[in-house]
């Protein structure tokens, strides 16, 4: 491994760790902020004995810092308590539904990259693509994804009867939700690619590449695009996380069985342990994704490694 890379990996992991710590503190704090975490963490119909047991489990008689450590210990062991609706361990429930959300977010992500990069590169040369991108980004950032989802369902599933309305099954079930979810990302990434390409194409090294008589294809895709990739990858990391977050509403609209839908159902029942567990696990996922994105950046741009 080139020198400097291992040092920067270590640095980034440390940073990720610190962030994770913050995530855990926030998740812990919310429950205890109300003053009576027990009533949150247990269903209203729980017995007095169950309450006493929970009090001991949480260590409520101890100082806050100790309570936090207990929480942390439980979290690291994967114990977020039991969901009252399902009467199962929160962790099991969340992990069972995580793949569906990841599938949805991942597909939307792939669609977003697949459209925004070529569109952005084309738009940087100007012309019709530039107009298309501008309109797309204006609309994409204003249209609420849940409304778009509903409209797509209306048009495609109800009126045209081309695709199923909702549910989880095969590719035909994945198409509409993934497209809906990808819209905002396409808008943001597309804009980034266009502006990045425009300034990259003005650079001196592009002039050199052309002076070498290289094919335009190579000049754009190898020389210019590479310099745009660092901000794109950084944003892509944030986007993927954002997708997982925005997936919540899309999952509701399309009845997609992911963690977003799970969280909304938990909301309806005030199933607090389930919510807390979902948020923590999702936060963990986010930190990992961003770490990965950071590492990709260091791989692409050797100058970053020294920073």
């Amino acid at each position: 491994m080139p020198a400097g890379l291992s040092a920067s990996i270590a640095q980034r992991c440390l940073h990720g760790f610190a962030v994770l710590l913050g995530v855990s503190i926030a998740t812990f704090a919310v429950a205890h902020a109300t003053g009576d975490p027990v009533s949150l963490l247990l269903s209203p119909s729980a017995s007095a004995a169950a309450r006493t047991q929970m009090r001991a489990h949480l260590g409520l008689d101890q100082p806050v810092a100790a309570q936090y450590l207990i929480f942390l210990r439980h979290a690291l062991a994967g114990d977020f308590g039991q969901s009252f609706i399902y009467r199962q361990a929160v962790t099991t429930l969340v992990l069972a539904r995580l793949p569906a959300t990841l599938l949805l977010a991942g597909t939307a992500f792939a669609i977003a990259l697949g459209i925004s990069i070529p569109l952005g590169v084309a738009a940087a040369r100007g012309g019709a693509a530039a107009w298309l991108l501008q309109i797309f980004s204006m609309l994409g950032l204003a249209i609420p994804s849940f409304w778009l989802g509903l409209m797509l369902v209306l048009a495609v599933s109800v009126w045209l009867r081309l695709l199923p309305v909702d549910g989880f099954g095969g590719i035909s079930h994945l198409v509409l939700p993934a497209i809906t979810l990808s819209l905002q990302s396409i808008a943001r990434l597309g804009r980034l690619v266009v502006s990045g390409m425009r300034s990259a194409l003005r650079a001196d090294y592009i002039r050199t590449a052309r002076a070498k008589g290289l094919l335009e294809r190579r000049v754009i895709w190898v020389h210019a695009l590479r310099n745009v990739m660092v901000p794109v990858v950084t944003m892509a990391g944030l986007e993927l996380g954002d997708l997982i977050s925005s997936a919540v509403v899309v999952e509701v609209v399309f009845a997609w069985p992911g963690i977003g839908r799970l969280a909304v159902m938990a909301l309806g029942q005030r199933d607090f342990p389930l919510l807390q567990g979902t948020v923590f696990i999702a936060g963990l996922g986010f930190v990992l994704i961003n770490l990965l994105a950071d590492l990709c950046c260091a791989r692409i741009d050797p100058r970053i490694r020294l920073a």
Binding site: Y205, R207, K212, L214, L215, E216, N227
Partner: peptide, 28 residues
């Protein structure tokens, strides 16, 4: 045409520029 010029540039006539730090692609 640009295509013709591309076949000449680098092959028949090559150019060396002033500031190599900005003239070389930093990421390759």
């Amino acid at each position: 045409t640009e295509g013709k010029m591309r076949s000449l540039r680098g092959r028949f006539v090559a150019m060396v520029f002033q500031d190599p730090l900005s003239a070389l692609n930093p990421l390759l």
